[in-house]
């Protein structure tokens, strides 16, 4: 499987020399001079950044580099001091988070947010967009939403089977393990039929037995035509599945490029990487947990 996925890497995403802020052939997300500071501390200061469509982009950088803050800004969970960004050509600055999600830009969280006292199936159904029965007045009349709800259940079960959670459909999400919750959160995000999936540390805290299937799920997203942007500390995962890597340090984008070239750049090594991390994930799956803990 690992050699197979290696061959699927997308190339030729950018125009010209790969450098911070390089133009992409087909950008889905374009960010311009987005700045955010907390107190006196500049958390994010991105001059220009384009995320390529239909590819898997990794956002890496040491702790406090502003990755999660950038995620929050892009998804409307936080407001920048200045700046603008567009998603599929639509300006997103000042748009509230739920509208961003409605447009097809869906995110997950670093600390998993499974809805503990809802069943796994309810969690899934909640993800679907444009539900008639979610309107207050319609909700009182089951004949208006029953059919749609049943269709959603079929779709949800299909996804749950893919994520091997179908046996747990009637359990409370609270009873799932940490890794299963990550899977559930990702599956739930897929219920929204997203265009761009933003994953905040999908591997953090996941037990090694589950990492392989998580990786495959991420690769599948691309296969199905979605764009993926993810934050990750685990270099092996980044090398393994990312088509493009954006490196942040102290709020700025310090390097961009294909995974095998960008990691050789001096700026990146200085900012972040240790010399021992140049082995491929396929060889050392078992080390992931250890390394991701080192990265924390």
């Amino acid at each position: 499987m690992s050699s197979n996925s290696e061959s699927q890497k997308s190339t030729g995403l950018h125009i010209g020399v790969a450098a911070p802020g390089v133009k992409k052939v087909d950008p889905i997300l374009v960010i311009d001079s987005v700045k955010k500071s907390f107190g006196g501390l500049t958390a994010v200061d991105v001059e220009h950044l384009e995320i390529p469509r239909g590819a898997i982009t990794a956002l890496i950088g040491p702790n406090g580099a502003g990755k999660t803050t950038l995620f929050n800004l892009l998804t409307g969970f936080d407001n920048p001091d200045t700046g603008a960004w567009s998603f599929e050509g639509k300006q997103l600055a000042g748009i509230s988070s739920f509208k961003v999600a409605k447009m097809g830009q869906v995110r997950t969280f670093q600390l998993t947010k499974a809805l503990s006292l809802l069943t796994v199936l309810e969690n899934m159904k909640l993800g679907a967009k444009n539900q008639t029965g979610e309107k207050l007045l319609n909700s009182l009349f089951p004949f208006l939403w029953r059919k749609q709800d049943n269709e959603l259940e079929v779709k949800a079960m299909e996804l749950l089977r893919r994520f091997k959670l179908d046996a747990k459909k009637d359990d409370f999400a609270a009873s799932l393990s940490g890794g299963q919750r990550k899977l559930l959160e990702m599956a739930r995000a897929l219920m929204t039929d997203p265009v761009l999936v933003m994953l905040d540390e999908p591997m953090a805290g996941v037990n090694p037995a589950l990492t392989q299937s998580l990786l495959e799920h991420v690769l599948n997203l691309k296969k199905e035509g979605m764009t993926v942007l993810f934050v990750e500390h685990d270099m092996h995962m980044v090398r393994h599945i990312a088509d493009w890597v954006v490196v942040m340090a102290e709020g700025k984008v310090v390097a961009e490029g294909a995974p095998d070239t960008v990691m050789k750049e001096q700026a990146v090594i200085d900012a972040y990487l240790g010399a021992h991390q140049d082995t491929d994930l396929g060889v050392v799956t078992g080390r992931i947990k250890v390394i991701s803990e080192e990265g924390k």
Binding site: F98, K113, L115, L118, L126, E185
Partner: peptide, 10 residues
């Protein structure tokens, strides 16, 4: 349960 999660679902 978690309003941010629901918000993130649109």
């Amino acid at each position: 349960e978690d309003e941010d999660a629901v918000r993130a679902l649109g």
